[in-house]
Design a protein around this nucleic acid. Structure first.
Lengths: 215, 215
DNA sequence: CTGTAAAAATGAATGGCCTCAACTTTTTTT
DNA sequence: AAAAAAAGTTGAGGCCATTCATTTTTACAG
């Protein structure tokens, strides 16, 4: 059993994150006053800053949780992808998109993205982009697996295509968070359309697959 | 000849933009104090805010100038594209990338991108994304022209591919601005590689082009 | 238990963007 | 050309994230 100091620390940390999460969702990131978060967590402002050096770090902790869960779910898709190249890629993307509003609102996502871009060379930016890179690698891993299974053209550059797909899904997600009106379905439709345009070019036609199977 | 009021206004506006541009480049956006910009432009802080409602609007004015010039140059490329699909797409992208540091530093770009994402539904965001959309349309226009000329597969979805290429070039540009170390050449190399992966899939091979010409 | 050091908590003070009520200059009207 | 209106300028002050010198709490040796 840990000492009193450690237990209190963990408890306070949980209280702070809980308070921040609630107030960010309720009032939005900007409108959530540090003083209000501290009060809700029953600590002083100074103490809060002992745990999180910047307001944005509270957000980063929440984003990390979100992306880590999604990476975990994505692994299942890569391990056992649906039948066709197009379905497999879309399934992975849907996993990402569907999870995206569990811990964060669109406004919180926008704020997180903005910080990750604005302040290069901060803990925030490095961590955020590491998470992005992990997602990109997962798409690449799926593309390579599909190529290994003969579902996409052996001559295609699976890595380059995977990276392009990630850049596109990421860019569209940004657009999605920018419009309160755009639905998750509209986002998926837009992205799936782009995936279809790409897979039309690289997917091995079913007849060829059957021929291969026959051999 | 315009009245005194108008002339003074134009003069003050120029002085403010000049001062902002200089101080942003010199010290970076964040470090440039509004008070210093006002002083350098020989107006009061209140007057500066009469011309630009937010510090960020000063930046937006500079970004607009940059993108409008690049769109203009891009038109020439679309009007008379180089010989192959790959060369044409890369030429357009190089036009964009090469111009990018004329008025802005990487830090200024990051700040502008961050604002455009964070504050949806502000004048800043709307204007920035309109410029982005115009660039995306220009890439689509090139792709459609290439398809019209028979340089890329008639069955391909030129619009979807153009949009994917734009999302990718935009995403890579973001990465470029995030690392002070990454050179323009490294950026171009990374993007050209991705373009090659795509054009390999859709470009009509030269032998076919010759056949078509023979007919 | 007591004394002492280390760790943590505290909240008043600071710095920088932006506002606004009062003032000045230019234009229009009489 | 005087008066009124319109347009523009001004800078002290408000707000809020963040800092830091001081106080309080915990750990632990004697």
């Amino acid at each position: 059993m840990a000492g009193l100091r450690e237990r209190q620390k963990a408890k306070r940390n949980r209280a702070i994150l809980e308070a921040a999460s609630t107030l960010f969702k309720q009032n939005g990131y900007e409108a959530a006053r540090i003083e209000a978060i501290a009060e809700s967590a029953e600590v002083s402002v100074g103490t809060l800053y002992n745990y999180y050096a910047h307001k944005a770090d509270l957000l980063l902790a929440i984003v990390s949780m979100e992306v880590e869960e999604v990476l975990h779910q994505g692994e299942s898709v890569v391990a056992a992808p649906p039948g066709t190249a197009q379905d497999a890629i879309c399934a992975l993307i849907a996993t990402y998109y569907d999870h995206s509003l569990v811990y964060l609102t669109k406004e919180m996502w926008r704020t997180a993205m903005a910080f990750s871009i604005q302040s290069a060379d901060t803990k925030f930016s490095r961590r955020y982009h590491a998470l992005d890179a992990a997602l990109s690698e997962q798409v690449v891993a799926l593309m390579e697996r599909l190529q290994g299974e003969g579902l996409i053209d052996a001559a295609a550059d699976a890595r380059a295509l995977g990276e392009v797909i990630f850049l596109a899904l990421n860019g569209l997600f940004t657009i999605y968070t920018l419009s309160e009106d755009m639905s998750l379905d509209a986002l998926k439709a837009a992205m799936f359309h782009k995936v279809a345009a790409l897979t039309d070019l690289v997917a091995v036609p079913e007849e060829e697959l059957r021929e291969q199977a026959a051999r």
